[in-house]
Amino acid sequence: MKPARLVIMGVAVVAAGLAGFIAMNLAGRQNVVTQVQSVIEREPSVNVLVVSANMPVGARINEKSVRWMPWPKSGVVAGLVTESEKPNAIRDLQGAVVRLPLFEGEPLRPEKVADSSSRVMSSLLPAGKRAVATDITAVTGAGGFILPNDRVDVLMVRKPEADGKYRSETVLTNVRVLAIDQQIQEKEDGSKTVLGTTATLELTPDQAKALTVAQQLAVRISLALRSVADSQEKDTVAPEDLLTGPDSSSMVQVIKSGKIAPDGFTPPKSE
């Protein structure tokens, strides 16, 4: 074989070996990707009693109204009813009266319901409050657009005085409507107005006295519907001029010519 061919073959062999070495070297330098499978651990949960359907004020709870639902253990706060603490809660709540509106999926809290043996209206009243009724018409009741659980102002038009002029004043502000006639919730057919003749209001004892006096002094008592945005305003104020004073429990109010007598009458104390 000629020397030239031997040289060419040698160069080819060396080039092939060099190429293979370079390829192996580059392959070894590539990053190795390691797949790591994430393991997701499920947070421990407990069964919490929740509402199965929307329930208005005054509705009674039955076995279809509530159910147990898994709830993250870390999200359980004081006041929630858990199966571990009260396994018979569904049975024990049968017939209980709803005091505040409940919505589907909401955890049921004991303070939102009243005992099944309670009368509906008395169970809706917070401690220290009174239910007092006043006559209304479509005109004096905001055209029938006042519904149970709304907030209203009570307005009074006084009987004309010596000058023959009528005067109006606000007797109560932002008080809650408990019922219209005998209805303590919206009509089942979905209508949004209740044309009643009597509105039952949630009042403090002093407010109840003031409204009773106003009903005797007034030509007309009207209810003015308040905005939902005003619901946080104070609702326990009673007008001083319609009360007999700090010792009103021992006095009889005297009304002369449509006005409260300045001094009233204090009955003698029994010995």
Rank of each mutant, 00 (worst) to 15 (best):
A133I: 04
V213I: 13
S116G: 01
S84G: 12
P72Q: 02
E188L: 13
A15Q: 13
Q215I: 15
R130N: 04
Q37S: 09
D115E: 11
I260L: 12
S38F: 08
E111Y: 10
D150R: 00
R176M: 13
T197V: 11
A27F: 13
A23D: 11
Q37E: 09
V76N: 09
L223W: 06
S257G: 08
D206R: 11
M121W: 12
V76H: 05
V120K: 08
V171G: 00
A142F: 08
L26Q: 15
G10Y: 02
L203T: 01
M69S: 06
L125Q: 00
V213E: 09
E271R: 14
L178W: 07
F103R: 09
A96I: 08
K259H: 11
L49W: 02
Q37H: 10
L26N: 11
S118L: 02
A138Y: 07
E104W: 02
L147I: 14
E186Y: 03
D135L: 12
A199H: 12
S257I: 00
V97F: 05
T200M: 08
A96K: 02
D189Q: 07
R158I: 00
P148S: 06
L201K: 01
S250H: 13
V76S: 08
Q183W: 04
V98L: 00
V254L: 12
L26E: 14
A214V: 01
R130H: 03
A89W: 01
D181N: 14
P101Y: 05
K234N: 12
P246M: 04
L6H: 04
P205E: 10
L93G: 03
G143S: 10
R67C: 04
R158H: 10
V76M: 09
V81N: 10
K129G: 04
S117N: 15
S118A: 14
Q35L: 07
S257Q: 06
M24S: 15
L155Q: 14
Q35K: 05
K112G: 07
K269V: 11
R226Y: 04
G258T: 03
R176V: 13
S118Y: 12
V77Q: 12
E202K: 06
G258A: 07
K256S: 10
E186W: 02
A89C: 05
E111V: 11
V98G: 03
G264P: 11
V132E: 05
A15P: 13
R99D: 06
S191I: 04
L195Y: 07
V120L: 15
V228A: 13
F21H: 12
W71A: 01
Q232V: 09
S222G: 13
R220P: 04
S248T: 02
K86I: 03
D235F: 01
D206C: 05
V139G: 06
A142I: 08
T137Y: 01
Q232D: 13
S123F: 05
L124T: 05
S123D: 04
G144V: 15
G190F: 02
K209M: 07
I8V: 14
A218Y: 04
L108Y: 05
D189M: 07
I180H: 07
Q216G: 07
N47Y: 06
P110V: 09
V157C: 05
N31R: 09
P267S: 01
V13R: 09
I221V: 11
A133Y: 01
A229W: 07
V50I: 11
L100Y: 09
L223H: 02
